[in-house]
């Protein structure tokens, strides 16, 4: 069998994969508990538009997608407030808008279709040093922000109204959180692909909920499960020549199944 670590691209994939395996479930746990699981999915469609824009004007697609996703995440918030009785409308609208813009930009750009496929389905071969560096810097930033605002995020996630009353700057923390979600989607998409990025944010957190005894454990297990999923998934995708995003998500689903069985056994 070929040794997986003799390939530079595999080292890069493991590095970038390691970073996103921490930030995706970290941010995803808060999303799931705030009942915003759909948001990752919506933002990933918008991120595709950013990638397409990146190809078109010749900037790094990850940076293009970060810009698009941050702008649209505030669009979602605005729409959510104006349609507050049907907050899922905002998510559906932004998702369609993202997809429509992505398709139009792609038809304008001469970038090869293979490139966009990397972002749709994820890729390990095409990750370059810049990608690794971007995912490293942004992951550190996201972890730092969540560490700093941990108690505020926990309180807002648990009970937004009580948090507001107790004097927590809820609006500010929400804006920061929205930006973190946007960045996480854009960074994670590089490996798992736009179609599956929200799975990596949601499924490990969902599995963790089955067994955690407190909030810290919820986050810890979500990261652990995601870490295992990403590494096993990348290895499987290498040896069996499968899509990395698909392999990662299947492994995480298996872990979620096991966690449910453990819970049922208790």
């Amino acid at each position: 069998m070929l040794n997986i670590f003799t390939y530079d691209f595999m080292i890069r994939a493991f590095l970038a994969g390691g970073f996103i395996s921490v930030i995706a479930p970290l941010v995803g746990s808060f999303l799931v508990l705030r009942r915003l699981s759909q948001m990752g999915d919506t933002l990933s469609h918008v991120a595709l538009a950013g990638v397409a824009a990146g190809f078109l004007i010749g900037i790094n697609p990850t940076i293009g997608s970060i810009i698009f996703v941050i702008i649209s995440s505030f669009g979602i918030e605005r729409l959510r407030k104006s349609y507050f009785r049907y907050s899922e409308i905002s998510i559906a609208v932004v998702m369609s808008a993202g997809m429509a813009i992505a398709v139009i930009l792609l038809s304008l750009s001469s970038g090869s279709p293979a490139n966009i496929m990397n972002y749709l389905f994820g890729s390990i071969i095409s990750i370059n040093n810049t990608d690794v560096l971007i995912s490293f810097i942004l992951s550190i930033a996201i972890i730092a922000v969540i560490y700093i605002f941990y108690k505020e995020l926990l309180y807002i996630t648990f009970d937004e109204e009580a948090a507001l009353i107790s004097g927590i700057p809820v609006n500010m923390v929400n804006i920061i959180f929205t930006m973190i979600v946007a960045i996480t989607v854009a960074v994670s998409m590089r490996i798992v692909g736009a179609l599956l990025v929200s799975a990596l944010m949601v499924i490990p957190a969902a599995a963790s909920l089955k067994i955690a005894k407190n909030f810290r454990q919820t986050i810890f297990y979500a990261i652990l499960f995601s870490f295992i999923s990403v590494f096993v998934g990348i290895i499987l995708s290498f040896y069996l020549n499968l899509s990395p995003g698909g392999s990662i998500v299947i492994v995480s689903l298996i872990i979620m199944g096991l966690a449910s069985i453990k819970k049922a056994g208790n």
């Binding site: 508990l33 309180y155 948090a163 955690a212 909030f215």
Partner: peptide
């Protein structure tokens, strides 16, 4: 919500 009793009580200090 997966918060322990002491985590919930600690929120009162935040």
């Amino acid at each position: 919500f997966p918060a322990s009793v002491k985590e919930v009580v600690s929120m009162g200090l935040y």
